[in-house]
Amino acid sequence: MKVTFVGVGAMGLPMARHILRRFPVTVFDPDSARTAELAAQGATAAVSAAEAARGADVVVVMVATPAQLDRALFGDDGVHAGLPAGSTVILMSSVGTDCAADAGRRLEALGAKVVDAPVTGGASRAETGELTVLAGAAPDVLDGVRPVLNLVASRIALCGGRVGDGQAVKLVNQLLCSVHLAAAGEALQFARALGLDPVQVLAAIEPGAASSFMLSDRGPRMLSTDTPPVRSAVDIFVKDSSLVLAAARKSGAVTPLAEQAAALFARAGDQGLGRHDDSSVIRMFQKEPH
């Protein structure tokens, strides 16, 4: 099985590395340094998404935004220009239901099969190959690409038979993640305000009922005296929160906590933290500007 991987950033690069251990992989990313790193490990680097897609059985796309997905798939020298009929495109980007469904229709019109497969678990689980895939696809189409997905994920959840169903579940996931991340920052800064050592507080509460993945994963970075490496940028939550709120408005859902979290991330972005690690959202709870 020949695999193409488009978009090898903080999430995509380790995912492509895992796939490369079993299948031949051709990679494309606008940042040639990233593809060079994978080429040194045995991948084939392409100069365009179209070139990367030629001859592929499976094309994985892992980019950050709806605009990037549209450009990667349908822009000049995009995947569409090299996509073989009968191949399967796995959309692993978190781009919202409408964007994924539209991309799916356009790809299917080109003769491709499509799996809507956003992931959760962050860069840490991308590194270990233990992501969760939230899949929207016909079961037989999903089964055809399980050998690829099993290399990057410890769990594949079939969320529905339509392209877009995986995205819908990812929106629910991101609502929770954004609220949990904001709550973690608020709680640790609250501990400081009470005169407590937040490192000790984190150690005390992290094993208990008040814990969350966001508290366990981001808490130590929030409290680090060093600038944390960017594992997931604030801008990702700005984007994902906007997708959540757009879907909430469309569906009539009441989401006050999501609205508060979205406003918090938007403010962090406005204050120049957009490209910083998302753990830096704790600064929004500090009285002194940073």
Rank of each mutant, 00 (worst) to 15 (best):
T4M: 00
G7P: 04
M11F: 11
L13F: 03
P14H: 02
L20Q: 10
L20F: 09
R21D: 12
T26G: 01
R34M: 13
T35C: 06
A43D: 15
T44L: 10
A45H: 04
A46F: 06
A49S: 12
A56V: 10
V58P: 04
L69V: 14
D70R: 13
G75V: 02
D77H: 15
V79T: 09
G86I: 02
T88Y: 03
S94W: 02
G96K: 06
D98M: 06
D98A: 15
D102K: 10
R105S: 11
D116K: 10
P118S: 10
V119I: 15
V119R: 03
T120W: 04
T120R: 00
E127L: 10
V133C: 03
V145T: 00
P147N: 11
V148H: 04
V148L: 01
S154Q: 13
R155M: 12
I156L: 06
R162Q: 14
R162A: 08
Q167P: 10
A168N: 07
A168D: 03
K170T: 01
V179T: 10
L181G: 09
A184E: 07
R192D: 11
R192H: 07
L196V: 05
L196R: 12
Q200S: 09
A204R: 01
E206R: 13
P207Q: 09
A209D: 02
S211N: 14
S212Q: 05
M222G: 06
L223T: 01
T225K: 13
T225F: 00
T225Q: 13
D226V: 09
I236V: 15
V238F: 05
L245H: 12
A247I: 07
A248H: 05
S251Q: 13
P256G: 14
L264M: 13
F265N: 05
G269W: 14
D270E: 15
G272F: 13
G272Y: 08
S280L: 14
S280T: 15
E288F: 02
P289A: 07
